[in-house]
Design a binder for these strands. Structure first.
Lengths: 199, 199
DNA sequence: CAGATAATAAAACGAACGTTCAATTAATTC
DNA sequence: GAATTAATTGAACGTTCGTTTTATTATCTG
């Protein structure tokens, strides 16, 4: 057999992306074989190569999509007006919501960086650095305005990023806490962490 | 050839553990082959199997050693007297010092859990849960004594753990900051995060 | 110094890996 | 409705994987 009835390139490609994110998040990039992925999609292994020339191309595609979506998400959510306290609140809320909604691709982006070639790793890290810079600017602005107590902007930014991204490690929706409750508590903790005067 | 001059089982086993931690931390468990590991140790692949029956046995050995060392480290460092504020300060200091000193094995323990069998995963997670329980008890004690503001003990414990463990992701000694400076800043941030009244 | 044991080498096993290529069929175009 | 293009299959490629087996040599024991 060859082309199957009702087959559609775009749908197949989307199905590959979807299955890949789920499998890689669960078993890890190296542990997932192209055969396993093809079986999950319901296709022969060779068919994957029509859409992604190599396994690493597929991984890179998933990671760039994730990072671009994250940056775009903050661009949309960032308040046009407001002081550093308002900005930081919006940042934390957006960050947690985005990552909880995309647990699997977040996992892939955090765990599989070492499977990228040098150039591609650099590109992903550059996107990430740009996003983190937004947080540092908020912290600096708050410190300069006398709203925050921040010993070291870079260090505090990393601490906050690690803390809020860590939500996806343990949090599962439909449990004891709702996303809104978690976001709310993290917001309060973040405000205390930076010693916000007007939170 | 066979047994080499000056060969010693204990030294070889230690060399295997050491090389394995470094290689797995850098390239990932799945990406490191037994041949690559043997080459790093300076031995033939078959020799590894005298010390570790399977590749997974080796991984499990590294992980249990790490977790046992962590628990033992806190047992030694925990103050015999002192209120929740003193306990939390000691916990954060010990946690950061331990993990910075053992960056590579921490990385292995955080990244390679999914390569363990179910039973072994359970064992590691149980050790980890016991350690995290110590932090929750400190937080509860501080909250009950009116020293801390804690919205949710479990959630705050996870936030603190993620924040302080995250140090190893970006921190490299011999840089802009010393370990002591980093620990000091994290201590202050933690105290503010829990709203400590007497820090 | 002989015998036992510990430590390793050398070679091979079958299985699984990422990937390629030619053939084949479905859908689209003219 | 014939020609073209898109989508996929089926089979195979060479390589690498974790692991096992057997032989060999160094060291230790009495």
């Amino acid at each position: 057999m060859a082309r199957t009835a009702g087959s559609d390139g775009e749908r197949t490609q989307a199905a590959i992306r979807d299955a890949a994110v789920n499998l890689i998040a669960r078993y890890g990039y190296e542990a997932v074989s192209m055969r396993q992925l093809a079986a999950e999609v319901g296709v022969q292994p060779a068919a994957l190569y029509r859409y992604f020339p190599t396994k690493e191309d597929l991984l890179y595609d998933l990671m760039t999509a994730h990072m671009n979506a994250l940056v775009a998400s903050w661009e949309t959510a960032r308040p046009a007006t407001g002081d550093a306290t308002a900005l930081l609140a919006a940042f934390v809320r957006n960050h947690i919501n985005f990552h909880v909604e995309r647990r699997h691709s977040t996992h892939v982006n955090n765990m599989e960086l070492r499977s990228l070639s040098r150039d591609r790793l650099s590109t992903i890290l550059r996107l990430r650095a740009g996003y983190e810079k937004e947080l540092r600017q908020i912290l600096r602005q708050g410190a300069d305005a006398g709203l925050f107590t921040v010993e070291d902007v870079t260090l505090t930014a990393m601490a906050i990023i690690q803390m809020v991204t860590g939500v996806i490690v343990w949090f599962r929706p439909d449990e004891r806490l709702s996303v809104a409750e978690v976001t709310d508590t993290y917001h309060k903790m973040t405000m205390r962490l930076v010693g916000a005067r007007n939170a």
